[in-house]
């Protein structure tokens, strides 16, 4: 008898005249997909292709020359140095803040989270300005610094501090929702069984937040390496000395060395692509875990 339930012929279901009332007609679906893909092709794919094409248009040798030339190597070294300080600093801040926010109740929590969001909305140029006003010759600490022969502005410390400011939210913002969602039962169990606080953090909390933490660090790293406006303001653009990779790209571009500019850009583009691949892996991992938890 069950065959009479499927009385609607299969070919009628497949044909366009039959569709479920909660779906759009096929022509509309295809048009919407086409429109979305056209938009993304124009705004996402073409800019990416133009970087890769221009970087390698003069051949692999020209690319290798551009990224191993002394000023480029100096920019790479400086960028790595800045990131090696800024990312761990924001990592410690992010983990500490997420622990306080996720495991405890206190007044002003939402204010704290809003403050962490602020650097995201502040213009990079204003970030640079804030520290020019702080450390510049006519700024608050300028006279004192020059009296003690300390250089912050137009030197590495200034670059580090604006990058720390600009990338402050990324790891914290990744960890706070993750740790809030995981609650605190597992930590409480571990502590009740006699483990110390540190041991609980290393063996219970850290494995739980591992993936989110990795993505937060990678995103923070990519943003730190790519920070442009704030660094442009405080670095003084001294070639071979205070030019990070994005500033080096700007110099090359303004000197009409387009192939070299895109060759150096391809390094940062590669980093950006790795970042979004890791984000996809983290999401895939989360989905799998959620599905396993549902069973």
């Amino acid at each position: 008898m069950s065959s009479s339930i499927t009385a609607v012929p299969a070919e009628a279901v497949r044909s366009a005249r039959w569709r479920r009332a909660t779906e759009e007609p096929v022509w509309l679906k295809r048009s919407l997909i086409g429109l979305a893909l056209a938009f993304l092709g124009l705004f996402l794919v073409l800019p990416l292709l133009v970087v890769l094409y221009s970087a390698f248009s003069q051949g692999l040798h020209a690319w290798a020359m551009a990224v191993t030339e002394p000023d480029a190597l100096a920019a790479i070294r400086l960028t790595l140095l800045v990131v090696a300080i800024a990312v761990p600093a924001n990592l410690v801040f992010g983990v500490a803040t997420a622990w306080a926010v996720a495991k405890f109740e206190f007044r002003g929590k939402s204010v704290l989270i809003s403050i962490i969001d602020m650097p995201f909305a502040i213009s990079p140029v204003v970030v640079g300005l804030i520290f020019v006003v702080m450390f510049g010759s006519q700024g608050w600490l300028g006279p004192w610094l020059s009296a003690h022969d300390l250089k912050v502005l137009y030197a590495v410390p200034g670059i580090v501090i604006v990058v720390v400011f600009g990338t402050l939210p990324f790891i914290a913002r990744e960890l706070i929702p993750l740790m809030q969602q995981q609650g605190k039962e597992e930590e409480e169990a571990s502590l009740t069984l006699g483990a110390s606080g540190w041991k609980t953090f290393w063996y219970v909390t850290l494995p739980n937040i591992k993936w989110g933490l990795i993505y937060g660090v990678i995103l923070c790293n990519a943003r730190a390496m790519g920070e442009f406006g704030a660094v442009a303001v405080v670095s003084g653009r001294i070639r071979g000395e205070t030019n990070t990779l994005p500033l080096h790209i700007e110099v090359l571009y303004n000197e009409y060395q387009f192939t070299a500019a895109f060759a150096v850009s391809s390094l940062l583009t590669g980093l950006a692509l790795i970042t979004i691949v890791i984000k996809s892996l983290v999401e895939w991992h989360d989905e799998r875990r959620a599905r396993r938890a549902a069973h």
């Binding site: 893909l37 993304l40 996402l44 794919v45 073409l46 800019p47 990416l48 133009v50 970087v51 221009s54 990079p124 995103l219 990519a222 943003r223 390496m225 790519g226 920070e227 442009f228 406006g229 990779l245 994005p246 500033l247 790209i249 700007e250 571009y253 387009f258 500019a261 895109f262 850009s265 940062l268 583009t269 980093l271 950006a272 692509l273 970042t275 979004i276 691949v277 984000k279 996809s280």
Partner: peptide
């Protein structure tokens, strides 16, 4: 679809200077 979904985050991860020179070239 998965590839496109991942690519949506590119403007967030790509340095703005790189975006700038690639847009003006385009």
């Amino acid at each position: 679809k998965r590839l496109i979904d991942a690519l949506v985050d590119l403007p967030f991860a790509l340095p703005t200077a790189v975006a700038g020179i690639s847009l003006v070239t385009l």
